[in-house]
Design a protein around this nucleic acid. Structure first.
Lengths: 254, 254
DNA sequence: AAGTGGTCTAGACCACATT
DNA sequence: ATGTGGTCTAGACCACTTG
């Protein structure tokens, strides 16, 4: 049973205290408490949370307020609510990644997850682009991973990842699984919460074209992804070059 | 003052009537009433809705239920809530389009809206692709508009639109404004609610390259957009070819 | 001052899943 | 039968905007 400082323990704001800065609703303060528990790993991926009633009693607010906080977390895909069962910490299983983080789909047939072959792993000082993207200083090192991803026998993507070494010590030494976000969460306590992708059409260099088995100068879709952790820090940069003959990038505008 | 049939006027379901089909919460029935009013133009873009209390009294539910229905409409960008002022029907002004429907942004500088020059307008029978996308039959006609869109002096996009003629009679004859979605809503009562875009990297044909002022075979980003109206019907197909030297397509994964 | 949406509470009941 | 999240209600009060 922990103790939390909520800004307005009594729902009425003190008079004479002229509100000064922005109003922060109670349910957002409660949400912040929950996010902290996710960041700190107190609530680990896959675990079930205490019931709404228990949380409300523990924190000292009504069940409706807890509910509104959890609803926002569910809308951000940080927790999953299942009626009759409980509220669970979201996991980076293949279903979620396919739904949330992998926007390439075959022109015909169901969405699927590509296989990966690691071409190289290395470490080194972050270059200017990596420092900019990952918010690193000149003395910081990164882990670089290069992978070829395919649908069956068809090469599809060349992917170059850059990770801050300080966040993922030893990752370059171990085996690299296909599902990296699950590894980040399980072994390093880093949960990817969302990402920002910038797309361009480019002409392939001779080198990249050779790896993909096409001609130099062929067009490819370049995807520059920056993935952010739960607390909003940039955590992974991923530059992908995709052949889009039989595949497309799906974007829903709502 | 209108009358609405709600499924469970008494909150308890009849016993002996074993629920048979799925449960439909009250607030979704209320939401459906509101969507109908938007589709029918009873509530026109920019108009202010009655207050939550008035709607609750009119329909015969609690204010909290009306609130939950309106919250969902707001989350879908169909209405805009402004504290202290009221709830308004969303409009397709430039701000909203830039935010919701135009994902191309300059690599440097703030997002902006490109200028348009109409290259041609025509009408004709829908081809196979248009029939498939827009759910038309062999006897249906489409309006086709071809535009060149630029940032200042720099040609950026060749855009080819296909519209069902029966939905937009006479559109091909009048002037074509830069902001088409505003025209659809204002003159034809068709509100674009969301869209689905499929992206590929392609090599430009000699013809398209000439219009854009680059070399044949240069890579370009192809965006195949299908826009859906409020009631979920496909309403516009838009095929864009974009030069992405100094511009990128932004996709947020949340 | 009055009206609007936004927050918070408390309680009753429903739908769903598990025991 | 029990426990969970989901719905619905009613009422009080807060924050914001406008006359």
């Amino acid at each position: 049973m922990s103790v939390h400082k909520l800004e307005n323990a009594a729902p009425s704001n003190e008079p004479g205290m002229p509100e000064a800065l922005g109003f922060r609703p109670l349910y957002r303060q409660v949400k912040a408490i929950f996010v902290r528990r996710l960041v700190d790993g107190v609530w680990a991926p896959g675990a079930v949370l205490p019931s709404e009633g228990q949380l409300a009693a523990e924190i000292g607010v009504s069940q409706g307020t807890v509910r509104k906080a959890l609803d926002e977390l569910a809308a951000e895909n940080l927790v999953v609510r299942r009626q009759g069962r409980g509220t669970f910490v979201a996991e980076h299983d293949e279903r979620r990644i396919l739904f949330q983080f992998f926007k390439l789909a075959p022109d015909q047939g169901a969405p699927r997850f590509p296989d990966s072959v690691v071409l190289s792993t290395a470490t080194g000082l972050a270059d200017a682009g990596e420092r900019e993207a990952l918010d690193l200083s000149e003395s910081d090192s990164v882990i670089r991973i290069r992978r070829l991803r395919s649908f069956g026998e068809t090469p599809l993507i060349i992917e170059t990842l850059s990770l801050p070494q300080k966040l993922f010590p030893g990752l370059e030494a171990g085996p690299i699984p296909n599902n990296l976000y699950s590894l980040y969460a399980g072994h390093y306590g880093v949960t990817i919460a969302h990402a920002r992708e910038r797309l361009k059409a480019i002409a392939l260099t001779a080198e990249d074209a050779a790896v993909l088995g096409v001609a130099a100068g062929d067009p490819a879709l370049q995807i520059d992804r920056l993935a952010l952790s739960l607390d909003g820090m940039p955590v992974e940069r991923r530059l992908s070059l995709c052949l889009t003959q039989e595949v497309h990038y799906l974007s829903d505008l709502r």
